[in-house]
């Protein structure tokens, strides 16, 4: 019985701990489909998922598409450079037109904050936020929590260190919300230009300037991608400097608990936010995150589309 009541997945902000657990449990039950020789089951036959991507994406988009296909849904993909956006159509009109073709779910990524929330007012389909501006990336956070639970058995009382551009990262926002909602202690650190100003706490996470304070006794270390495309804004003097002072080196990893999980949402800038030997080290679960991403997205699609059944 599907007791999931959320209509859309817009952000972790609006999900309860119970709902998060339910999504994780659902993903758990769907995960082994991915390991079968015939990787397809029928629950979403006849359902249509539209992937509406206004920003480049490899991982997230492929992950959502595979998730939909594994569950036998029909999928269509639209990216900004092939859509009528170039002809000057407004986002609301684009959404209304897609709605007129009766899809069941719209998975949307957009460079501006609040856009998936905006289109829910104009469409009847369920909307999944696949990343909006610097706001949220809920499916990434769910797969991160899922990966940690898979390896460590629980989330409660763990110390999670998140390093990098906290304020401009939708992954950081959703991760902080998800891990704190599940009872973990989250500490974030990075260059002060990438942390919220004048706040010792952000969304429930502790903000520290010294990376060592974040790493000490950490059970999990999540390094965020330095967005090279943002460097025009001079948040840091150079990638080289970032690598030297803020990158996750083997030395820094040793400050954390031994066996602490190493995570990264990808794509990695090797040698900038993470040393290659850390990314490829024994406690790196970065590729598990990618595999689990498909399971989490299968869970989201099936929970939204099989309501009441």
């Amino acid at each position: 019985m599907n007791r999931f009541t959320a209509q859309h997945i817009l952000g972790i902000y609006s999900l309860s701990p119970d709902e998060i657990t339910f999504i994780l449990d659902t993903a758990e039950s769907l995960k082994d489909i991915l390991e079968r020789p015939i990787k397809k089951v029928p629950p979403l036959r006849g359902k249509t998922v539209v992937h509406l991507f206004f920003e480049p994406s490899t991982r997230t988009r492929l992950s959502f598409e595979l998730a939909a296909k594994r569950l036998s849904a029909d999928t269509v993909s639209i990216s900004a450079n092939t859509s009528s956006v170039l002809k000057g159509e407004t986002l609301i009109d684009t959404a209304r037109n897609i709605e007129a073709m009766r899809p069941d779910v719209i998975v949307m990524r957009h460079p501006q904050t609040g856009t998936p929330h905006l289109i829910t007012k104009y469409v009847k389909s369920a909307v999944i936020n696949a990343g909006d501006g610097i706001n949220e990336h809920p499916s990434q956070a769910l797969l991160d929590v899922f990966t940690v639970r898979q390896h460590l058995g629980h989330i409660d009382k763990l110390k999670i260190a998140i390093l990098g551009d906290i304020i401009h990262s939708r992954v950081a926002h959703s991760d902080i919300l998800a891990f704190t909602k599940m009872g973990a202690e989250v500490v974030v650190s990075g260059p002060a230009t990438m942390l919220p100003s004048r706040q010792s706490e952000v969304l429930g996470a502790k903000v520290v300037l010294k990376m060592e304070d974040a790493l000490e006794y950490a059970d999990v270390i999540i390094a965020l991608r330095i967005q090279k495309e943002r460097q025009g804004q001079s948040l840091i003097p150079s990638l080289r400097e970032y690598g030297l002072f803020f990158g996750l080196s083997p030395d820094k990893v040793r400050l954390a608990k031994s066996g602490a999980l190493i995570m990264h949402p990808g794509p990695i800038n090797r040698g900038v936010e993470m040393a290659p030997e850390v990314a490829d080290g024994p406690y790196s679960v970065i590729l598990d995150q990618v595999t689990n991403g498909v399971a989490i997205r299968m869970a989201l699609l099936s929970l939204l589309l099989t309501k009441g059944s």
């Binding site: 904050t113 609040g114 501006g133 610097i134 939708r170 100003s197 706040q199 952000v202």
Partner: peptide, 18 residues
């Protein structure tokens, strides 16, 4: 920036104006 910089801009994920 699209709104005041502070707690709410962080929650909403909007770039703030200090």
């Amino acid at each position: 920036g699209a709104m005041n910089e502070g707690l709410v801009s962080t929650i909403l994920g909007l770039k703030g104006i200090p």
